[in-house]
Write a protein that binds this DNA or RNA. Structure first.
Lengths: 247, 247
DNA sequence: ACTAAAATCATTCAAAAACATTCATTTTCA
DNA sequence: TGAAAATGAATGTTTTTGAATGATTTTAGT
């Protein structure tokens, strides 16, 4: 593989994911660690990226260190764009399911004023919806520590009482072969159930999730439309399910 | 996971929750305590957060005044006394139900460290339990505006999946003739169900509720023990059910 | 208020991961 | 063909990490 091509690949991957691991690039380009290291050093001296231990990240703004708020914003930008796009599918009178997760949570502000009913398994989302005065149903279940989501068998049981028009799900892995995947089996069960009870399902995922596969299988790609802002592998996924570009 | 990524996760969580516990971040990032401590010290020196004992907090958190309502509540001391008394009935290994309400919520601090399982229909209580690291199940249902409680038919359905040793309920009216009453029929349904599925039930009520009667009948007085700090009409109620004095 | 127990903390250390550097080999291109 | 450039492996060094230890703070009980 030509040096130019590798550099191109690296920068592309970086612009999508904000940070890349060295090992990741080794796999991606099928070249040695040494080579990737050299590439990263070169690209750094050319000002395209910043090396960090374990890989590289996008360069910070040229003039000044971004403030705390700005950094957060940049991190959230992609999620918000996806969330906003997702919210456009919601019409007055609909009932929707909002899965736990930062991307789906980003949808909440865009629901303001809509005459809808929301079902969710996320405590933070329920709290936000409460503030927005939106009719909200919370499913039962065990409160999971890391994500403040309600999961497990009881959650599934409780969900079966609802039917929604649209379901919006976060996802950790989207892969052509593996389909939609997430690390925790109990969360996977909840997501799976959500897809079952919704008329139409959407998966919200930023570019970093595309091509990834994690432990628990949720569904095949055709079970839900994908809303993302990644161009990468869009074309191949599009042969299986509908893909919405949030840009 | 790359250091940069951890830092971003930490800042993101922090901006959402205002304060984070170290343990929480360990769960979230799946890295060791040591690593998180190092991250926090780094981020602190970079000026992104302030470390506090047990975790970290946003740099400029204007500490919230106790709300108008809280200040106005003359019964706050009484509530705490009742809550503390109620908590003494809970032993390790038990499963308990905590009804939504300020008095039952006051029990939560007294649960710290107990090896129990809690079922609740209250979002605020679930949030507090989350911080205390107590195994928590939330029942499903509609989120009621005024109390942030989950109520209604679906709540009842969802509750039927659990069996608890003890149930602790708030109540608006305790009257010799009318029994236990509460204003909202949907909440009454939930309370009634809780009493059904618990082996032993307790009603927590300050003096202001004694002798009152409100719209919806929950149960007769003998269906639950009463924990109160009122001497008034204690004697007459005692002929019907067990009364615990919290003083 | 005081003491004991528990939780959290800073510090240290060894293992693991990632690193820069060197060098022999392969590729490229004149 | 031969020199320059690029590559990958080998080496020893540095950084990062998680566990262990004891110190410190917080909490609970009297």
């Amino acid at each position: 593989m030509l040096t130019k091509q590798r550099h191109q690949l690296i920068l592309q991957r970086l612009s999508e994911k904000k940070v890349v691991k060295l090992k990741e690039l080794v796999d991606l380009t099928r070249s040695s660690e040494s080579t990737i290291r050299r590439d990263l050093t070169d690209l750094e001296t050319e000002g395209y990226l910043a090396r960090v231990h374990g890989g590289a990240t996008l360069i910070s703004t040229p003039d000044e260190e971004p403030t705390f708020e700005e950094k957060l914003d940049r991190f959230v930008d992609e999620k918000v764009a996806i969330a906003q796009k997702a919210a456009t599918f919601i019409e007055d009178g609909m009932s929707i399911y909002l899965d736990a997760g930062t991307t789906t949570q980003a949808m909440v502000p865009f629901l303001k004023g809509k005459k809808i009913v929301v079902v969710t398994n996320s405590l933070p989302i329920a709290n936000e919806l409460f503030d927005l005065d939106i009719k909200t149903f919370v499913i039962g279940g065990e409160l999971k520590r890391s994500t403040q989501a309600l999961v497990g068998y009881n959650a599934r049981e409780s969900m079966m009482n609802y039917r929604v028009d649209l379901a919006f799900l976060g996802m950790n892995g989207i892969d052509l072969d593996a389909g939609y995947t997430t690390p925790d089996p109990e969360e996977a069960l909840v997501k799976k159930t959500a897809i079952e009870l919704a008329q139409t399902s959407f998966v919200l995922a930023d570019a970093s999730k595309i091509g990834k596969r994690t432990f628990s299988r949720v569904a095949t790609l055709d079970a839900a439309q994908l809303i993302t802002s990644s161009d990468e592998s869009m074309s191949s996924i599009q042969t299986i399910t509908k893909v919405v570009n949030a840009k």
